[in-house]
Design a protein around this nucleic acid. Structure first.
Length: 535
RNA sequence: GGCGGCAUAGCCAAGAGGCUAAGGCGACGGUCUGCAAAACCGUUAUCCCCGGUUCGAGUCCGGGUGCCGCCUCCA
């Protein structure tokens, strides 16, 4: 026990859908991680669920890198499929043009949320030869068959089928066909398309089975093996992809490359609900990422999504106030646009822009508290002189990073990790308020440690990394826009109150404060004058 | 019907056998302040029900109840 590390390295543990258990991460190559995530099908703007599905792997990748792993992260773009074709028809735009456009929009949303680009972002249209080769392999192995230019996977020939989603062939067969018409040409209703024969006017590529295009699941099998090899470490996606998408990927990839290949761990994120309901078309429970980042700072959305464990569902509370009288509108009122309290009618797009998300607002406030603390800590460090002596860093700040990391090692528990910041944050604020009870050196060194460790946390979470002044300014402006607050009016009142205070006219000063309070604004008096913020 | 998940304080939410059950919001009390606000300190739960395993269980097993998801496109 001389030069050896005192403790064995603590492994990262992650929950694996295939085994149903949490297990230590053991990578194929030591110190390296290959990770594939199902990216978007680009036919429309992303919704918040898409954002979460991209955010979860982003944080996983960031953390694994922080842990010292060399990560190759691949996230695809599906740029050819039924929905894209349907949309392109409606819009009268070529499919690939529509796909390019929404891929750009997707990147814009990801960037706003500080989601790092993947190392490789393969597109289906660029992998047609690999897809055709994979389909051909499956046909050769007797795992697929061609009918009239279509190629189907012969599910019954792959004995592991159902192992990811814990389903049995017989049970699935019972249910099959009851909800959707069965294609009589298929050997079994469970067989799924690997290659679809082209219909007139559809984009297509030549293949051994005639002109056609890839089926839905084959692209991920082809692209993951192209960029990560036949076997890699982690495969991720939304919960709903477990069946059929990932189940089919396993059948395709293992069918072609062998049963001992493909992903070692399967990571699936939970769903987002609005007002307790799964997203659907109605007003109160479907929001694009962009609608929300127009109302709140994107980082507030990011922070909010990280407050809950990635495997859990996450609910956005939704409040839709009547623009005329402020009464909260119920579901039917939201749909009709008519307020029962005052009778006012409001168009739905106006209503959508006034929606409030209380949970998100709480996250927004919390983030503001963190940025204010960071701002003050930096101001203190810039103004103070670094002391010569050594004194131990205060307890909670010293323990912050280890606690944060240990939560993250526990299946990327961002909720717990965020909780571990609270005591250190309070301690930092306490040190900033006064140096009472601690030595000068301890005060400085603790705040310095707080600042540097928070930078590491920021790197992993992708939060708290912006310039505090800029972020707080952005937040204030967005909140003013959201609530319809006139900032000029507020600042005029604050100035007027300043004069009253200078004259020690407390009654007048307090009256103005009440006026500001009525606008939803709080003033804070400090030694260097008064500042204001939202209550 | 099949498969899977969840049920922790007023609300949100960590916690996967054992020190006083994280944290946030809210509420209440206090410090600070001209008074406030912000900030800080303190108070605020025995974990859906029943049975079992164990020296010991939110934490494991069985049963029940209640939510939710997937089984069809879906993050």
């Amino acid at each position: 026990m001389s030069d050896a590390p005192i403790t064995a390295p603590v492994p990262v543990e992650l929950h694996d859908t295939l085994s149903g258990k949490k297990c230590p991460l053991q990578t194929i190559a030591p110190g390296k991680v290959g990770m594939y995530c199902c990216g978007p099908t680009v036919y429309d703007l992303t919704h918040v669920g898409n954002a979460r599905a991209a955010l979860v792997p982003d944080v996983i990748v960031r953390f694994l890198r922080h842990e010292g792993y060399q990560v190759k992260y691949v996230r695809n773009i599906t740029d050819i499929d039924d929905k894209i074709i349907a949309r392109s028809r409606e819009a009268g735009v070529p499919a690939s043009e529509l796909a390019d456009r929404y891929a750009d929009e997707y990147h814009r949303d990801m960037e706003a949320l500080n989601i790092l680009p993947p190392d490789v972002e393969p597109r289906v249209q660029d992998h047609i030869p690999q897809i055709i080769a994979l389909v051909a392999t499956l046909v050769d192995k007797g795992l697929a068959y061609a009918v009239d230019g279509d190629v189907y996977y012969r599910v019954a020939a792959f004995k592991g089928y159902g192992k990811l989603s814990k389903r049995h062939l017989e049970e699935m067969l019972e249910g099959a066909g009851s909800r959707i018409d069965v294609d009589e040409r298929k050997e079994s209703p469970l067989d799924f398309a690997l290659w679809k024969a082209a219909k007139p006017g559809e984009p297509s590529w030549d293949s051994p089975w005639g002109a056609g295009r890839p089926g839905w699941h084959i692209e991920c099998s082809a692209m993951s093996s192209t960029h990560l090899g036949d076997s890699f470490d982690i495969h991720g996606g939304g919960r709903d992809l477990v069946f059929p998408h990932h189940e089919n990927e396993i059948a395709q990839s293992q069918g072609a490359h062998g049963e001992d290949t493909f992903a070692r761990y399967w990571v699936h994120n939970g769903f987002i609900n609005f007002a307790g309901e799964k997203m659907s078309k109605s007003l109160g429970n479907f929001f694009t990422t962009r609608e929300i980042t127009a109302l709140y700072p994107p980082e507030s959305l990011r922070y909010f999504l990280l407050t809950v464990h990635y495997r859990s569902g996450l609910n956005f509370e939704v409040e839709v106030p009547c623009p005329a009288c402020g009464a909260l509108l119920g579901k039917s009122e939201q749909e009709s646009g008519v307020c029962e309290a005052c009778g006012a009618h409001t168009e739905s797009d106006v209503l959508r822009r006034r929606v409030r998300f209380p949970g998100l607002e709480e996250a927004d406030d919390r983030l503001a508290y963190i940025y204010r603390t960071l701002r003050q800590a930096r101001a203190f460090l810039a103004a103070a002189k670094k002391p010569g002596g050594e004194e131990p860093v205060t307890e909670h700040i010293a323990g912050m990073l280890p606690a944060f990391v240990s939560h993250m090692r526990n299946d990327f528990n961002t909720g717990g990790a965020l909780g571990a910041l609270s005591k250190p944050l309070a301690e930092a604020n306490s040190l900033l308020a006064s140096g009472k009870g601690v030595g000068k050196a301890a005060r400085y060194l603790s705040l310095e440690r707080f600042e540097t460790d928070m930078a590491q946390v920021a790197e992993v979470l992708g939060c708290f990394g912006q310039d505090p002044d800029q972020w707080l300014q952005q937040r204030r402006d967005m909140k003013a826009a959201r609530t319809g607050l006139d900032i000029d009016q507020v600042e005029a009142l604050v100035r007027k109150r300043q004069e009253a205070r200078a004259a020690k006219d407390w009654a007048a000063a307090d009256a103005i404060r009440d006026e500001l309070a009525a606008l939803g604004v709080a003033v804070m008096d400090g030694p260097e004058g008064s500042v204001w913020d939202f209550k």
